[in-house]
Amino acid sequence: MGPLYPQGLISEPLNLLIALFIGIGFGIGLEAGGFTNTRKLAGVFYGYDFVVLKVFFTAALTGAIGLFLLDNYGLMDIELTFYPKTFWIPTTIAGIIMGLGFIIGGFCPGTSVCAAFTGKIDGIYFVIGAFIGILGYGFTYEPLFEKLRNSGGLGKANIAAELGISDELFIFIVTVFAVVAFIVANKIQQKVNSKNPVENIEELGL
């Protein structure tokens, strides 16, 4: 019964080997999906390419449906996994900072690593920037960020429980919402690209 490693059912070296293979699958998904192309990523904010929305929601929902199915059939216990704690104040502030970083930099950390190692020079600059940001944060952590980072703590909060509905119902609602969003996004994308297409649109491989 999963999760295997936290319960000591597989060894540490095997766990790290599995990490490597999971990473390979993740990397193929990101690169093949077009996430090393910064223009495709930024498209979600301007309506000319919604690949981020499609890949991202499909991945998160596949994960959610699969994990809760495993949990319901007793094949794994979600409570034993890395279940993120919620600190709503720093997450909101940091989220807005990252949103700004997304619009300016055109990547997020995972996609920038893929881009940098497949020869995108802008990806390399982004990764360097991320290191500068992390070190800057690290060196100023105690005076500047420590208090903020630990404010607004809500523990291991589950959104379905907060809304007073079951995990299953919540995932179903998000799935329906996502499917509607996919259809609307396709309409917007067609409209934007037929009326006022971005230059060199063939690079996006739509």
Partner: peptide
Amino acid sequence: GGILWGVGSQLGRGCTSGLIMSGMAVNALS
């Protein structure tokens, strides 16, 4: 943009994959 993400991901306990996607997969509020 990288610098902003560097700071943001540390303050917010993760980035698009660790905070958002992995969080959404287990219905985490965060």
